[in-house]
Simulated scan of single mutants.
Amino acid sequence: MRKLPRVPAGTDAPPLASRRGVLLGTAAAGALFAAGCTSNQNNEDPDTGRQPAGSADDEPGKEVTIGFAGPQADHGWLNAINEQARSRAEAYEDVTLVTTEGSNDIAQQSGQIETLINKKVDVLVILPADGKALTRIGLKAMRQNIPVVNLDRVFNTPQAYRCWIGGDNYGMGLNAGRFIGERLKGKKNAKVVELAGMDNLELTQERTRGFDDALKNYPGIEKVARQAAEFTVESGQKKMSALLQAVPEFDALWNHDDDQGVGAERAIEQAGRDEFLMVGGAGSRHAMDAIQADDSVLKATVLYPPTMAASAIDLARALGQSRGVGGLAGLEIPASVTCYSAVVTKDNVEEYLPTGFN
């Protein structure tokens, strides 16, 4: 499902900038639709004035200024979101990206988006620090005829955005549970533990719900313990230590976040435990390197792909140029796009390595 409050802290990151862009504030891959949007050639339908779906999208078209506003990039995944948006915008000659500094303060981010609205950008891409609290600013942009692509943490009403694109938190848990279930299938009295994220976040609750639902299909497997961490290395190490002390022996661990997973790995190494397999979440480069090396308990990670930000730029460009999306019959872009939570293992890790974030 979709993220609502802010993603917890992780690594610091520089502010977002673009080759053709502008940074606002005090300090101021192929994406989903990379080849799937419609052409810039002058072949509009005379009745609709829109480009027909299914043609190429490589040639420059109408100039589009996209305003990008996200929270502070204090976590590896959020830094990757910024980088994906910037890189995708740079790939288009007809896109100018105007970005904010990013903030986890609701009032400050609201002011930054107000600045973008006052600059009269053509389209806004917004990853709100808090979707519910910032719904008002999405509504304001839409009422001023600036279409909004709502990225990941959803606003409180669809009236505040033209299109939502984000990850599938329930699907993350579901696919993690299925992977573990298949690996432990047939083992008697198999035990699993869960290192969750922040329990006050809906995204954490959805990841746990998906995981529990998947395990229902494997009656021989029991979840015997769960700890909630805070998506940081420090919290991951502390909470994993507690799990290891509470459960002398288990067969699998589902960790919600690869950043906190770094701490969890430290705790596991310090305890000298290796009788279980570990599945991570999000898709960091560190996790993928460990999976590829195959010399630790970490055997898989379930993606929450930051490439959704690149896809958001594609969607914003399509909106600014009054396009549909290639491969779809509709003349308009979809109202929502949910990214798939693929499971990265040793068998397919090379394919996903370019998407791994630091």
Results as ranks from 00 to 15, higher is better:
residue 268 I to G: 04
residue 261 G to D: 05
residue 205 Q to Y: 05
residue 271 A to Y: 07
residue 202 E to H: 10
residue 182 E to D: 15
residue 353 L to M: 15
residue 71 P to G: 03
residue 45 D to H: 10
residue 292 Q to E: 13
residue 13 A to T: 08
residue 125 V to P: 03
residue 309 A to P: 02
residue 172 M to T: 04
residue 166 G to A: 11
residue 293 A to E: 15
residue 296 S to E: 09
residue 87 S to Q: 11
residue 90 E to Y: 01
residue 28 A to F: 10
residue 1 M to E: 10
residue 141 A to W: 05
residue 250 F to Q: 04
residue 273 R to N: 08
residue 92 Y to F: 14
residue 123 V to G: 01
residue 184 L to Q: 06
residue 334 P to Q: 11
residue 157 T to R: 07
residue 92 Y to H: 10
residue 339 C to L: 15
residue 53 A to F: 02
residue 55 S to W: 10
residue 297 V to L: 09
residue 59 E to K: 14
residue 20 R to G: 02
residue 15 P to Y: 11
residue 307 T to W: 04
residue 152 D to I: 04
residue 268 I to D: 08
residue 62 K to Y: 05
residue 355 T to S: 13
residue 179 F to R: 05
residue 342 A to P: 04
residue 343 V to T: 14
residue 217 N to R: 11
residue 69 A to G: 11
residue 30 G to W: 07
residue 327 G to L: 12
residue 97 L to K: 01
residue 318 A to C: 15
residue 110 S to F: 06
residue 289 D to C: 10
residue 357 F to T: 00
residue 295 D to A: 14
residue 292 Q to S: 14
residue 234 E to W: 01
residue 49 G to P: 08
residue 265 E to I: 10
residue 87 S to W: 00
residue 146 I to C: 09
residue 162 R to E: 15
residue 248 P to M: 06
residue 116 L to V: 03
residue 226 R to L: 14
residue 267 A to Q: 04
residue 319 L to K: 06
residue 308 M to Y: 07
residue 158 P to G: 11
residue 179 F to Y: 15
residue 233 V to Q: 03
residue 24 L to I: 13
residue 158 P to Y: 10
residue 28 A to I: 07
residue 11 T to M: 09
residue 185 K to L: 09
residue 296 S to W: 06
residue 289 D to Y: 10
residue 252 A to W: 02
residue 149 V to H: 05
residue 219 P to F: 06
residue 203 L to P: 02
residue 205 Q to S: 12
residue 134 L to S: 03
residue 98 V to G: 03
residue 28 A to V: 12
residue 8 P to E: 13
residue 315 L to R: 06
residue 191 K to P: 03
residue 290 A to V: 12
residue 125 V to F: 03
residue 188 K to V: 09
residue 304 Y to W: 13
residue 67 G to L: 04
residue 275 E to Q: 15
residue 140 K to D: 14
residue 217 N to W: 02
residue 21 G to M: 01
residue 350 E to H: 11
residue 220 G to R: 07
residue 29 A to F: 01
residue 155 F to R: 00
residue 185 K to Y: 11
residue 198 M to Y: 11
residue 14 P to R: 04
residue 240 M to K: 03
residue 35 A to W: 08
residue 43 N to C: 07
residue 164 W to F: 15
residue 322 S to P: 00
residue 312 A to L: 11
